[in-house]
Structures are given as C-alpha cells and as structure tokens.
Amino acid sequence: MDSNEPALPLVFVHGMRVSHTMWQPVMQAIGTRHPMAAPDLPGHGARRGEPFTMPGAVAAVAEAVDELGGRAMVVGLSLGGYVAMATAGSHPERVAGLVAMGCTALPRGLFGATYRGAGRVAARYPKGVDRLSVFSFRRALPGPLAEAMVAGGLNSEIISDIVAAVAGQDPLASLAAYPGPVWLVNGERDRFRRQEGRFARACHQGRLTILPGRGHISSLADPTAVARQVLDAAAAATASRSNPTPAPPDRPAVPKRGPADRLDGAALPADDAA
C-alpha cells in the first residue's frame, strides 16, 4: 500500500454483555495510522437499557462506518462477529473486508438450547452472572486485558434477548451475500468452531485461520498478534480493491480439535458466548 494513500478505517464490534472497551488493547497495539471506531451495541456500555435487536446492532456498526468515511474493515468477536457478518450481508458497499472471530457456530439444536437455557439463568440472576463473568475473564486473560473486558460495565440481563436475536439470523446467507474478503478466525479450543467449514464455504473470498491452543476469549490474549492479523487483513483488503478480480478462497485444512479448554469451553460467563 502506498504510504501516501489513506489507511483503511477499522471498526471493532464487541462481544455479548461487555462493551467497546474490550478492544482497547488491540486498538492501542495498532496505533494511530488507521482511523478506528468501536461502537457500543444496543443494550451495552453507554447504551445499556436499550433493547438489543440485530437490526439495531447492524445500524450501530453501519453508523460507525459512516462516521469514518463510509467504508471500513469490520472486525468482530463472538456476538460482534455475528453482527459484523450481518452488517456485511446487509451493507456490502460499506464493508471493505471482514474479520470474524469465534462465530462459526449455528445456534441450533442442542447447542442452541444450551445457550437459551443459560440466557434464561442470566436474565434471572444477572448480578451473579456479572460477578462470575468478571472472575472468569480475569482467569482467562492477563490482567490489563481482563480489565479492558469489564471497564465499560457488564450487562448479563440482556443475554437471553441476544441469544434469540442471533438464533433468528442466518449468518451463512449473510456471508453468501457479501462479495468481499473474509477472514474467519477461531481458537483451536473454541466451541464456536462447530460449523467453521460451512462458514468458510459460504464466503466468496474466505480464509480460515486457527489459533493453536486458544479458546474463545483467550484468542485475545496476545493483542499484538491480533493487531498484526487485522493489519495484514486490512492491507490485503486494500490491495484487493486495486485488483478487483476475486482470488480463489483459501481454505486450509482444519486442525483437529484440542481438548476442551476449562475456562473458554465453559458456559456463558467464561465464553462471552453468543
């Protein structure tokens, strides 16, 4: 990329029940060259008290993209990844590239029922789930990263609505509707890898990356490595605009799953599942 060319804007989308602050370590590692934004989704952070809906979440991301000039790479983890995919499918002209982390599972069947049940528990005992979440984040991540996860406050009472909203969307259709480059990133021990092959095949320009030894939240344990991956994706997305002919999807073999990670493979509080 030419050094005089404006750097591609980046929009980061947070996970369930946390806020935009979870991305601060990664954004700090990226530095100042790329314009960046990290909006709070409805019901989270500064927008606590608002109802969560998928259209409302997509609108929040699209607004952040517009504030950065109307086109950006969108990066999301967990719930943020599902919202990012929905945004790309709904507004492909606004999304220059997509990095979707920890969100290649379809919340259907027994898997979906498990999380709907956990959501009902969280709605009934939100303060207890918030406390358990703080404990779990601090066990799964180094200190400063764990504090970034909780700095904007937690809101577990909204989990049930989020699970229903994610279950009501079709992420495979969103990926199929988006013609741009997609990077699917999963921790080796992440339970949200379940249908990663189907998600990769749904992409027009898809790449699947597995982080060895990482789980769902611990995929953020090295913010410098995450920043480097985002920057590499941004550079590739910028180059693809200069050469618009789509490259064949890069679908490397998926490593065998490792044993379940005790923290990242646990129920909702440690997972940031959504």
Rank of each mutant, 00 (worst) to 15 (best):
I30A: 09
A96T: 02
A122T: 02
G117Q: 12
N243V: 09
L106Y: 10
G117P: 04
L184M: 01
D271P: 00
G70C: 02
Q24D: 15
P42D: 12
F192A: 13
H216Y: 10
G45P: 09
R193G: 01
P42T: 14
D66M: 11
V134Q: 15
W183E: 11
L77Q: 05
A113Y: 02
D2L: 00
V95D: 00
G80C: 03
G117F: 14
I162V: 15
G168D: 10
R120H: 06
V163H: 03
F192L: 15
S160M: 04
P35T: 04
G119F: 02
G109V: 02
L208F: 01
F111Q: 07
R201E: 06
R214L: 14
A57V: 06
S242V: 03
F192T: 12
E5L: 07
V95H: 00
Q205T: 03
H204I: 07
R193S: 05
G119P: 03
A202Q: 12
F192Y: 12
A148Q: 05
A202H: 13
S160N: 14
L68P: 11
E63Q: 11
F199G: 08
G265M: 08
E93A: 15
S19K: 10
V61C: 10
P55F: 05
T21N: 03
G89Q: 02
S78M: 10
A37T: 04
P255W: 04
R71W: 00
S219N: 14
T53N: 02
Y115M: 02
A236P: 02
A37V: 05
R17N: 14
G213L: 14
V74L: 09
V13I: 10
D130A: 12
E147G: 07
A266N: 07
V150P: 03
P248I: 10
H44G: 05
A148S: 12
T21H: 08
H34V: 04
M22P: 08
M1P: 12
G206C: 02
L110M: 02
G109R: 03
V99F: 06
L154R: 14
A59C: 02
E196M: 12
H34M: 08
L10T: 09
R138W: 01
M101N: 06
H34L: 02
M1S: 11
V99C: 10
R201F: 00
A7C: 13
